[in-house]
Computed example of a mutant assay.
Amino acid sequence: MTQPIRVLIVDDEPLARARLKELLSEESDMAVIGECRDGNEAIDAIGRQRPDLVLLDVQMPEPDGFGVLRAVSREYQPAVIFVTAHRDFAVQAFEANALDYLLKPFDQERFRLSLSRVRERRRTGATELDAELVERLESLSSRLTPASERYATRLVAKVGWRMRFLRVEDIDYLEAEGNYVCVHQGKQSFLTRETMNAVEEKLDPRDFVRIHRSLIVRLDRVEEVEPLAPGEMVLTLRDGTKLTSGRSYRARLQRALDLPS
């Protein structure tokens, strides 16, 4: 007997989650294994439960749907159906089998069409997300989202089996450490399993600047800057920490701190 398709529902609206659950209850080959209210819960649940399909809301409390996709291990990619209330997304008119979208409010017929694409994906053994489609969706989302809402207000670090939420306003600087990023807050430091590029995208450039391929610093923590030759600078933070910038980052550091050329 064929195993049911294991489905994870991710949406910050209780009524939306209930509606999806109700529709799925009428599909004999679908089994709901969990519900998540935000992106952080989704990342954790996908890693632990390995669903076959994720019904993923686009705009949620951080991280949003795209942030969830970026955080999912490339070694494991579930099928994804985006769910959105923004009619602008319909302009994209995707027809990809590996990834679909549902525009709220949607009817049962449209929902079943999305599920048929998931079934086809399973039948053919497709495992890759449509990267081009994700990129188009993310670009559109950026244009629809006010600048003040595009950046994270907290990062997530794993401490043992627990998830620790780190307020961005408390961060002094971030440092690459192997496959992790070490987040420094005062005398404490925490590891988050993300790349420096991914973390940099989450941080508001009005508050943070990358000064080295392995260093990002919060601007209001910088107390003193000492130029070095050739092209490097030593930044002294409020707590006395000294960080050395890379030569190729000199121009962006000068702009960020409004330093003379």
Rank of each mutant, 00 (worst) to 15 (best):
R19Q: 01
S148V: 10
L99I: 09
T145A: 11
T192P: 07
W161V: 05
S261G: 13
D204G: 05
E27M: 01
A93I: 02
A85L: 02
L99H: 04
R122C: 10
S28K: 12
V32K: 08
E175Q: 15
P4W: 05
L8P: 08
V181I: 09
V118F: 01
V134Y: 08
E132C: 02
R112Y: 10
L113F: 05
L103N: 00
L20S: 00
L253N: 06
R119L: 03
L103I: 08
D239M: 06
M233P: 00
G231W: 02
R213F: 06
I171G: 08
D64G: 15
L115C: 03
V225N: 05
A176F: 07
D52I: 13
R19F: 01
L237F: 13
P227M: 12
L191E: 10
V168E: 07
V159W: 06
G178S: 06
E232M: 14
R70W: 13
V118R: 03
L166F: 09
P14Y: 02
V168S: 04
F190V: 09
Q185L: 15
Y101T: 03
M196A: 04
A45N: 05
T124M: 04
E177F: 10
L8Q: 07
R6G: 04
D204L: 09
E194Q: 15
P146V: 12
R247T: 02
L102E: 01
F82N: 13
E200C: 12
M60P: 05
M196Q: 04
R164T: 13
G160T: 04
I216V: 15
D29K: 10
P51I: 06
E95D: 12
D11P: 11
A147W: 11
P227A: 12
L24V: 00
L53Y: 08
R87Y: 01
E177W: 12
R121T: 07
M1F: 08
A152R: 12
D88C: 00
K104G: 01
W161M: 08
D172A: 13
I9T: 04
G67V: 14
R252H: 11
L228I: 00
V234E: 04
R50D: 05
G34M: 10
F106D: 03
T153L: 06
V134E: 10
E120H: 05
A152S: 14
L219V: 13
R193L: 11
R143H: 01
V199L: 15
D170A: 12
P61W: 03
R121C: 09
F94T: 03
A18F: 04
A79F: 10
R74G: 15
R206Q: 15
I33L: 10
A229C: 03
S25L: 01
V80W: 13
A176W: 06
G39A: 09
L191Q: 09
I9M: 07
E226I: 03
T127H: 14
Y101E: 00
A126F: 00
L137R: 03
L191F: 15
D130S: 07
R252K: 14
R70T: 13
Q108C: 05
L243R: 03
T192A: 06
L137I: 14
F111H: 00
P105E: 00
L129P: 11
R112C: 09
V183P: 11
H212Y: 05
E224G: 05
G178E: 10
R110C: 00
E41D: 08
V181H: 13
D170H: 13
V80P: 09
